[in-house]
Amino acid sequence: MKKILIIGATSAIARELAKRFAGRGDKLFLLGRDEGKLQIIHADLQIRGAAKVVYAAADLANTEKHAGLLQQVYKTLGEPDVVLLAYGTLGEQAQGEQDYTMAQQEFQTNFLSPVSWLTLLANDFARRGSGSIVVLSSVAGDRGRQSNYIYGAAKGGLSIFTQGLRNRLYHSGVHVLTVKPGFTDTPMTADMKKNFLFVSPAKVARDIEQALEKRQTILYTPWFWRFIMLVIKLIPEWLFIKLKL
């Protein structure tokens, strides 16, 4: 039985992963913004077999609250074996191009506030010398494209930050997993036109659980995104700038 903290527990991928943890009989602490949704998930996970489920509603991007929330987690759950950092927003790229405050907000939510969580968590995990930190990044962070470079830059920053963190924490026995999902059928992509590349959050959750068990470092999910992104990264810049990606 593991103690698991989920930051961003109402996100679709986190929900599916939490169901799997609950089915194993783990203890869960859920952090999310929307109390009503947390209540629904709380009941669901308890029925599915979680040994304990506790939740707290908070604005996760507000870094001033992070230390206090973690204290609350440690008090009610104990120090977690696994932390899943799963929240994020996909803002309107076109709006961000016109309005810095919007881009700033995207960075606050998708990069800066995760860095705050990870800074606090990394030190606690390092002290204990065990456990796993799972961070949801995105394939969008692998190369800047005109259609979503603001989101992409934030996720790219997060990927590099967790990469460095993994390198640092490796020496103290802490596992850091960077997850790069491709297109997933979630509220975040509700307005996107769906094609065959879209997969369900349940599938992504299954891949993450497996990667967590095998202590993998970087997970592309589904697997073929590793090759799609490899090709995209290999395109020379002089050609890439001409493409409408």
Binding site: I40, A43, D44, I47
Partner: peptide, 9 residues
């Protein structure tokens, strides 16, 4: 399909 939560058992 996403309205897939158990509410009470």
């Amino acid at each position: 399909q996403n309205l897939n939560h158990f509410l009470h058992f």
